[in-house]
Amino acid sequence: MSGIKDFIDNEVKNNDVVLFMKGTPGFPQCGFSGQVVQILDYVGVDYKGIDVLTSMELRQGIKEYSNWPTIPQLYVKGEFIGGCDIIREMFQAGELQALFEGKGVATKAA
């Protein structure tokens, strides 16, 4: 499992915004992942989507990495932010946009 943990660690630390999801941003395979994609696209932030369906090891590994049992999972500047419910609540409260701003991540309409 150390290999997959290093892979995840590397992705999370070398990309400002990373979404571990089922499917791809262009073709989400799960409604929860799709909701987060829509929100990130609306906010207009650049992010990297990583499809956990491509690897059983990755799908299990990300749950252990964050100690979080479900997917999707959003990371910003190395920090785990939350899953679908949390991202949606933060977005609706304007907190997600503020988080990106606070961390110096460019958005479309700041």
Binding site: W68, G83, D85, I86
Partner: peptide, 24 residues
Amino acid sequence: RIDRHRSINALLADELKAGVHALA
């Protein structure tokens, strides 16, 4: 928010292991 979710996820860890795979 994260702590609330973590708390509930931990409480329901057995159910998540036993077949519940989505918990909104």
